[in-house]
Amino acid sequence: KVFVPPFKTKSHFHRVEQCVRNINLEENRQKQNIDGHGSDDSKNKINDNEIHQFNKNNSNQAVAVTFTKCEEEPLDLITSLQNARDIQDMRIKKKQRQRVFPQPGSLYLAKTSTLPRISLKAAVGGQVPSACSHKQLYTYGVSKHCIKINSKNAESFQFHTEDYFGKESLWTGKGIQLADGGWLIPSNDGKAGKEEFYRALCDTPGVDPKLISRIWVYNHYRWIIWKLAAMECAFPKEFANRCLSPERVLLQLKYRYDTEIDRSRRSAIKKIMERDDTAAKTLVLCVSDIISLSANISETSSNKTSSADTQKVAIIELTDGWYAVKAQLDPPLLAVLKNGRLTVGQKIILHGAELVGSPDACTPLEAPESLMLKISANSTRPARWYTKLGFFPDPRPFPLPLSSLFSDGGNVGCVDVIIQRAYPIQWMEKTSSGLYIFRNEREEEKEAAKYVEAQQKRLEALFTKIQEEFEEHEENTTKPYLPSRALTRQQVRALQDGAELYEAVKNAADPA
Rank of each mutant, 00 (worst) to 15 (best):
R384H: 10
S151G: 10
L107P: 02
D320Y: 03
W385S: 02
I87T: 12
W216R: 04
S292L: 12
P397S: 09
A314S: 12
N219D: 04
Y423C: 04
V207E: 01
D262G: 13
P397T: 05
P424S: 13
S267W: 00
G105R: 02
P368L: 05
G409R: 05
I224V: 08
G141D: 12
L365H: 07
V207A: 05
D416V: 03
D276G: 10
A229V: 05
A200S: 10
N378I: 01
V284F: 03
L365P: 09
L253Q: 00
I290K: 05
D277G: 07
E247K: 11
S80N: 14
I272V: 08
E168V: 14
G345D: 00
P236H: 07
F239V: 05
R384C: 05
L228R: 03
S370C: 09
R222I: 03
S119F: 05
T319R: 02
L283P: 00
A279V: 10
P236T: 08
D416G: 04
L115V: 15
F165S: 07
F239L: 08
P236A: 10
N241H: 12
G181R: 08
G390R: 03
D163Y: 11
R91Q: 05
D86G: 13
R381W: 04
K111T: 06
K254T: 01
V249L: 06
E168G: 15
P332R: 12
P236L: 05
L244R: 03
W216C: 01
W216S: 00
D320V: 01
I261M: 09
D208G: 04
T204P: 00
A353T: 12
L389R: 02
G105S: 06
L184H: 02
T259K: 11
G413D: 11
V249G: 03
V207G: 03
W322L: 04
K430N: 06
R248S: 13
R222K: 09
C243W: 07
Q88R: 08
Y221D: 00
A377D: 01
A327P: 01
Y198H: 07
P186H: 09
G413C: 12
K281E: 06
W223R: 02
L211H: 12
E168K: 15
S213F: 04
D320A: 01
G141R: 11
R421G: 01
L184F: 09
R256S: 01
K237T: 13
E274K: 06
I224N: 03
P395S: 09
V124I: 10
D208H: 12
P382T: 11
G175E: 11
E247A: 10
D330E: 07
S379N: 14
S294N: 15
S113C: 11
D203N: 07
G390E: 02
S302R: 13
P395L: 10
I225T: 10
R199T: 11
G206V: 02
V249A: 08
N241T: 12
R421T: 04
A200T: 14
K237R: 14
P397H: 05
T319K: 01
Q426R: 15
P205Q: 08
L228M: 10
L333F: 07
D309N: 14
T114S: 11
P424A: 09
P236R: 07
L250R: 03
A367T: 09
A200P: 02
V412I: 12
L285R: 00
G181C: 09
Y255H: 08
A179T: 13
G321V: 02
E196K: 03
S106N: 08
D208A: 09
D320H: 01
R248T: 15
K95E: 06
W385R: 02
W216G: 01
Y221N: 00
S403L: 14
P129H: 09
V344I: 03
P382L: 13
